Simulated scan of single mutants.
Amino acid sequence: MILNLPNILTIFRMVAAPGIALVFLFLARPYADWAALLLFAGASVTDWVDGYLARKWEQTSRFGTMLDPIADKAIVVIALATLCALFGMTFWVVFPATFILLREVFVSGLREFLGTTAGLLKVTKLAKWKTTAQMVAIVVLIVYGVFSHYVGMGTFGMDGAMVDDILAGRVEDTSGLGWKFRGMVASYWGGIALLWVAAALTVITGADYLRKAMPFLREDAHD
Rank of each mutant, 00 (worst) to 15 (best):
41 A>V: 12
90 T>K: 12
37 L>S: 07
73 K>N: 12
56 K>N: 04
36 A>L: 06
63 F>K: 06
39 L>W: 00
79 A>C: 06
78 I>H: 06
89 M>E: 09
32 A>N: 07
63 F>I: 14
45 V>L: 13
89 M>P: 00
53 L>N: 00
38 L>M: 10
91 F>Y: 13
82 T>G: 05
91 F>T: 14
82 T>Y: 05
85 A>I: 13
42 G>A: 12
58 E>C: 04
36 A>C: 08
76 V>I: 15
68 D>T: 14
83 L>K: 02
91 F>L: 15
44 S>Y: 07
39 L>R: 01
38 L>F: 10
81 A>G: 15
85 A>F: 13
77 V>K: 05
77 V>W: 08
32 A>D: 07
55 R>F: 06
61 S>G: 03
81 A>L: 14
80 L>A: 08
88 G>T: 12
32 A>R: 02
46 T>D: 08
44 S>H: 02
82 T>C: 04
75 I>F: 04
82 T>S: 07
80 L>W: 06
88 G>H: 03
31 Y>R: 12
51 G>R: 08
73 K>P: 12
79 A>F: 05
38 L>G: 01
81 A>P: 00
62 R>C: 04
37 L>G: 07
68 D>I: 09
93 V>I: 14
52 Y>N: 10
89 M>R: 13
38 L>H: 01
33 D>P: 00
79 A>T: 12
